[in-house]
Simulated assay, not measured.
Amino acid sequence: MKKPLISLFAFAVVLLFSACSSKPTSDAPGTAEPARRVSPNDGRYQQEHDSKPSRLPTLLEMTDPTPKAEALSRGGNNPYNIFGQDYLPLAHLTEHEEIGIASWYGNKFHGHLTSNGETYNMFGMTAAHKTLPLPSYVRVTNLDTNQSAIVRVNDRGPFHQDRVIDLSYSAAYKIGMLQRGTARVKVELLKSPAMLAQQQQVIPMQRAPELSTSSRLARQCYIQLFAISDNNRARQLQQQIASQWSVPTEIRSGNGLHRLLIGPTADTQLAQQWLNQFRTGSYPQAFFVDGNQCG
Rank of each mutant, 00 (worst) to 15 (best):
E250P: 00
N232F: 03
P264G: 02
Q269I: 06
R163E: 01
L167K: 02
V151Y: 13
P158E: 13
S229V: 09
T182I: 15
T145R: 14
K191E: 15
Q220C: 06
V187D: 12
R252I: 14
V202S: 01
R252S: 09
Q200R: 13
D144F: 04
L270N: 04
P193N: 10
T265Q: 01
Q236Y: 00
V151A: 11
Q272A: 14
Q238S: 05
H258F: 07
Q236T: 07
Q200M: 11
P209S: 13
R233I: 09
Q240K: 03
H258M: 00
Q147K: 15
Y169F: 15
R252Q: 13
I150H: 03
E210A: 15
A208G: 12
Q273S: 11
N276S: 07
L257P: 02
A197D: 11
Q238M: 12
K191G: 07
P248L: 11
Q201H: 08
Q199A: 14
G181C: 12
L211V: 09
E210W: 11
M177T: 02
G256E: 04
T265S: 15
T280Q: 15
D166T: 08
L270H: 08
N255A: 13
V185M: 12
S148G: 00
P158R: 11
R156Q: 11
R235H: 05
S215W: 01
K174F: 08
R163F: 14
Y169I: 06
Q277D: 09
R180I: 05
N255H: 09
M205V: 09
T268W: 06
A227D: 07
R163S: 03
R259E: 09
S168Q: 10
T182A: 03
R163K: 13
A208Y: 05
L237C: 04
S168G: 14
D155A: 15
Y173N: 13
N276E: 12
A286N: 06
L189T: 07
Q161N: 12
P193M: 10
Q206L: 09
S229Y: 04
M177D: 03
K174H: 12
R216E: 14
G157F: 09
A286K: 05
N232L: 13
E250F: 14
M195S: 05
N146C: 04
D230Y: 03
T213G: 06
M205E: 09
V202P: 02
I228C: 03
G176W: 02
A234L: 09
Q244E: 13
S243H: 07
L167M: 02
R219M: 07
Q269V: 10
S212M: 05
S215V: 04
Q272T: 10
S215K: 04
A149D: 04
G181Q: 04
R259S: 13
S243E: 14
Q273R: 07
Q224D: 05
L270G: 05
S148N: 02
V187A: 08
L275W: 06
Q147D: 14
Q236K: 00
M205S: 08
R252G: 04
N142F: 11
G256L: 00
N231D: 04
S170A: 15
S282V: 01
C221N: 08
P284M: 08
S148L: 00
L260A: 03
R233D: 14
P264L: 01
V247H: 09
G256Q: 00
R279W: 03
Q198R: 11
P209A: 14
R207T: 12
L237E: 07
A197W: 10
A149S: 13
Q272W: 05
N231T: 01
